[in-house]
Design a protein around this nucleic acid. Structure first.
Length: 749
DNA sequence: AGCACGCCGACT
DNA sequence: GTCGGCGTGCTC
């Protein structure tokens, strides 16, 4: 046998997630490389579909091989390194090989022409008039009961997705296909998601001469004998960017290249400016706002070797750059580095793989590192480099805590404390601007006592219980523990125990009532549905046409308005009560970030942090901006409660249109996992929790149930999970119940 | 995703 | 016997 080629076909179903062997005529064979896109006959009808060459085996287990029809272009779309990255992601994140390959490919190239900001769901619509539909109904009745049911459904709905049709009527795809082939129905797709937020803000940096600390950092990172992962831990303004620049400069001198990841391009325009001003045309920028043409230009420059530094967001980690010498991840704790789509990769983990593959340093950088990252730096797995000196002499804003329990005692039941009201008034008088930050995520549905600050928590998981209106109960979303809703605080017996729910609009009303002359800009989900209105609001605020900006998460990062001298954090501890083991980490970051918005101009800034738990360690450490103290506290909790970095978490999410079927199916899966763990002797070192309704138990009328596994990931567990996926795809239920598996998810949702 | 194979019940 | 309806399983 000769000229055998292994091909991954471009079909997203799990059932073709394997390699297919083909032959190639000599002339074509000589052109093929790993990463070549080819066209191959596939299936009974020999339909020609796309595929990617991934290997050249000597022999094949299949005797009658079909022949490759054509090659798409002589240039392969990925090299062996990026193919290794794809295989790594398939393994680690339980995706198919083809979707891992599509992830490493630049969008807009080859097969990958999905519109980046939109997701589509496939389904069917009626293709005939209602009168015709009713006459078909008579025609099909008794003869074809399934088709009748589908048609009845379609008469009542404009659009129904494939899985929903199967779910509701209990038919298989064939029935729908038959109706489509009779032209009674027509296939269509609807957009279900639009990427909502654009940031339009600038954070300033200042140039300076490298100090001793920076020099040490540069030398350590550049030491050839010293590759591995570094954590560059430095306070804001300690000059981390200059360290990056000089490390890269050294690499470029050695003819090496660099990848720099930033959390979101629009938040960090001046970083890009600094890179461009230092390295000129050798810099390529990759982010989602590029047009298809711009992006393909950048990729061509990278592939041609015209570029020494690629700077970009998460997906820039797949830049096809040769001779990599260093990878840098700025603000490494940011959650934008974790992909939402399959494979749900974390750019840090992929970067680590590429760094190891090339034997080069990976530099993680942050003022508030991810707890797991800092832990690894403490244990020596990463090398810790600290930058302690602030290069610019700006002082951090003065942070003051306001005890909201005291406000209640004083008879103030509104969301804004008297102290904050006072300061707002002062600012209005002095014509200075104010930002009010509403921790919206925290204002959901947990239960807390307004007298003593008690919050209902699950005893086993130390996670807040979530209030469920439907059955007046409180539930832990990790283990399913449920109690009846509390009417009286079990700690202080006060009746002022209640759940919360406040939006930016309500705060806005309150401010307008209290300060009739003031101009406010509420920035909520409702007010910023149109893309433009968001940056409109920010622009008006920047031009000082509004006094007070009221917003949620979107006002925390990057905004740099010199006239803002006051930041008010409404209910800082609310984020603590989200039932996610990382809520402490998030709250700390958030308060640190939002307080940093004040006093960026000449006048010193101040921040008022309202809280029901002023004695809470996280709040106190955030007030002092003391990351180390916060870390020490948090890592202890993680160890006691066994959360990352002391274990891995696998989340298995089930989604379907009816509640009953999902929960019982999830229970079956749980039983399967437990049995498999038992057989493999891993039941003792693991914890299988659930199934429970997920935090967002119903989205788009889909019910969501979840199983969480705490374990130490190993090959045995990987095999069990992969078998579970295979098994699931063989079940009837898989047609309407989707099973989504995520390794160390960002949010437990 | 597409296609064919095979089973089943209804009708000739 | 035959045909349409429907589920299932395979694709080098």
């Amino acid at each position: 046998m000769s000229n055998i080629v292994s091909v991954v076909v471009n079909r997203l179903t799990r059932s073709v997630d394997k390699l297919f062997d083909y032959t190639a005529p000599d002339e074509l064979y000589s052109k093929l490389k790993i990463g070549s896109m080819v066209y191959v006959p596939f299936g009974k009808g020999d339909n020609v579909i796309e595929g990617f060459v991934v290997g050249f085996p000597e022999t094949s287990t299949v005797d009658s091989l079909k022949e490759i029809v054509a090659i798409s272009s002589d240039e392969p779309l990925f090299d062996e390194e990026l193919f290794a990255v794809a295989k790594f992601m398939k393994e680690k994140y339980f995706s198919t090989l083809i979707s891992a390959i599509k992830t490493i490919l630049p969008p807009g190239v080859g097969v990958h022409f999905d519109k980046t900001n939109e997701m589509f769901v496939k389904g069917v619509e009626l293709n005939i008039s209602y009168d015709d539909a009713y006459s078909y109904l008579e025609l099909l009745r008794d003869k074809a009961p399934m088709q009748t049911r589908v048609l009845e459904l379609m008469i009542q709905n404009d659009f129904v997705s494939y899985s929903d049709v199967c779910m509701i009527t209990g038919c298989s795809r064939t029935v729908i296909k038959t109706l489509v082939s009779k032209s009674i129905l027509i296939e269509s797709e609807v957009s279900v998601y639009r990427n909502p937020i654009d940031y339009d803000a600038i954070e300033q940096t200042y140039s300076f001469e490298p100090n001793d600390e920076q020099k040490t950092a540069i030398n350590m990172i550049s030491d050839e004998e010293n590759f591995g992962t570094f954590l560059l831990y430095g306070v804001t303004g300690s000059g981390k960017t200059e360290v990056f620049l000089q490390c890269i400069e050294k690499k470029i001198k050695d003819n090496k290249t660099a990848i720099v990841l930033v959390p979101e391009i629009s938040l960090t325009p001046q970083i890009i400016e600094r890179f461009v001003s230092r390295f000129g045309k050798k810099v390529a920028v990759l982010h989602s706002k590029l047009s298809a043409g711009e992006r393909s230009d950048e990729y061509r420059r990278i592939k041609n070797g015209e570029v020494s530094v690629v700077i970009g967001v998460r997906s820039a980690i797949f830049a096809p750059i040769k001779n990599l010498g260093i990878i840098i991840i700025d603000e490494e704790h940011e959650n934008t580095y974790k992909s939402e789509n399959l494979p749900a990769y974390h750019a840090r983990e992929v970067a680590q793989f590429r760094a190891q593959y090339n034997d080069i340093p990976l530099v993680l950088s942050s003022a508030t590192p991810d707890i797991t990252t800092f832990y690894k730096a403490q244990t020596g797995e990463y090398k810790l480099i600290s930058l302690t000196k602030r290069v610019n002499q700006k002082n951090l804003p003065n942070v003051e805590l306001v005890d909201m329990r005291q406000e209640l005692i004083n008879g103030n039941r509104s969301i804004i404390s008297d102290r904050l009201r006072e300061e707002i008034e002062k600012n209005l008088k002095n014509k200075q601007q104010t930002i009010l930050f509403l921790n919206r995520r925290g204002f959901s549905s947990f239960v807390s006592c307004r007298s003593c600050g008690y919050t209902a928590k699950c005893q086993r998981c130390n996670i807040s219980l979530t209030y469920h209106k439907s059955n007046e109960s409180l539930t832990c979303h990790y283990c399913g523990y449920t109690i009846k809703n509390l009417k009286i605080c079990p700690k202080c017996l006060s009746p002022y125990i209640r759940h919360f729910g406040v939006g930016t609009q309500k705060v806005d009303d309150d401010i307008k009532n209290s300060f009739p002359g003031s101009t406010t800009a509420p920035m909520g989900v409702d007010t910023t549905t149109k893309k433009s209105s968001h940056s409109d609001i920010l622009n008006r605020f920047k031009e000082e046409k509004t006094d007070i900006l009221i917003g949620t998460q979107m006002v925390t990062k990057g905004l740099d308005f010199p006239s803002v001298t006051l930041v008010g954090v409404l209910a800082a501890d609310m984020g603590l009560n989200i039932n996610d083991y990382r809520s402490g980490e998030r709250t700390f970051d958030l308060i640190t970030q939002v307080c940093g918005r004040a006093g960026r101009g000449e006048v010193a800034g101040r921040a008022l942090v309202q809280t029901y738990a002023p004695e809470n360690d996280i709040i106190l450490h955030a007030k002092e901006q003391n990351y180390i103290a916060f870390y020490e506290n948090e890592i202890n909790l993680r160890q006691i409660l066994r959360y990352p970095p002391f274990c891995d978490i696998i989340s298995i999410l089930f989604t379907a249109s009816t509640n009953n079927s999902v929960s019982s199916y999830a229970q079956k899966v749980r039983n399967y996992i437990e049995r498999a763990f038992l057989l493999n002797n891993i039941i003792d070192s693991s914890d299988v929790l659930g199934p429970t309704p997920s935090n967002l138990s119903r989205i788009n009328n889909k019910y969501r149930w979840r199983i969480l596994i705490k374990c130490n990931m190993n090959d045995k567990i990987k095999t069990i999970i992969n078998n579970l996926i295979k098994g699931h795809n063989k079940t009837k239920e898989s047609k309407w119940i989707t099973m989504h598996i995520e390794y160390n998810p960002n949010n437990i949702v």
